[in-house]
């Protein structure tokens, strides 16, 4: 049963509430209830965090390598990869400030677009 399976507003909202709201607030409520009873260093949490991190990383890669719409039309794959690597390198090299990484990546992307790369 996908989002497109039933062409009705109630189903689309139910889809978002179940796969979105419940799927996220579940963890938040569990976090409150467990409070400080669970150790942040627990071995299970290390594995769960690794899987979660890899999942977000897969989303990042998808947005960079297979973007949709405007980004795909305006830029080439190589320019996006070079910009992302440059931004991340600047982030790591200059004190791990997110703003530095973001502005460097956007700067390289902007220059590349202006040069028609």
């Amino acid at each position: 049963m996908s989002y497109q399976s039933i062409d009705a507003l109630w189903w689309q909202i139910a889809f978002i509430l179940i796969a979105g709201w419940i799927a996220t607030d579940l963890w938040r409520v569990m976090g409150v209830l467990l409070g400080n009873r669970i150790r942040e260093t627990s071995e299970v949490l290390v594995l769960v965090r690794a899987i979660a991190t890899a999942l977000v990383a897969a989303v990042i890669a998808q947005l960079i390598v297979f973007p949709s719409g405007a980004l795909a039309e305006q830029t080439t794959l190589w320019l996006r990869i070079v910009s992302a690597v440059a931004g991340f390198a600047a982030f790591l090299g200059l004190g791990q400030r997110v703003a530095v990484g973001v502005f460097t990546a956007l700067g390289v992307l902007g220059v590349g677009m202006a040069l028609g790369l």
Binding site: T53, I60, T75, G87, L109
Partner: peptide
């Protein structure tokens, strides 16, 4: 719009790395 769409993955790329607690988190990201 293209530049703004690009901002999101880069924003995550940097903040995800910063939020990793242990080497396995950063390895998972790579």
């Amino acid at each position: 719009l293209g530049a703004l769409f690009f901002l999101t993955p880069i924003y995550f790329l940097c903040s995800l790395w910063g939020s990793a607690r242990e080497p396995s988190g950063q390895l998972a990201m790579v």
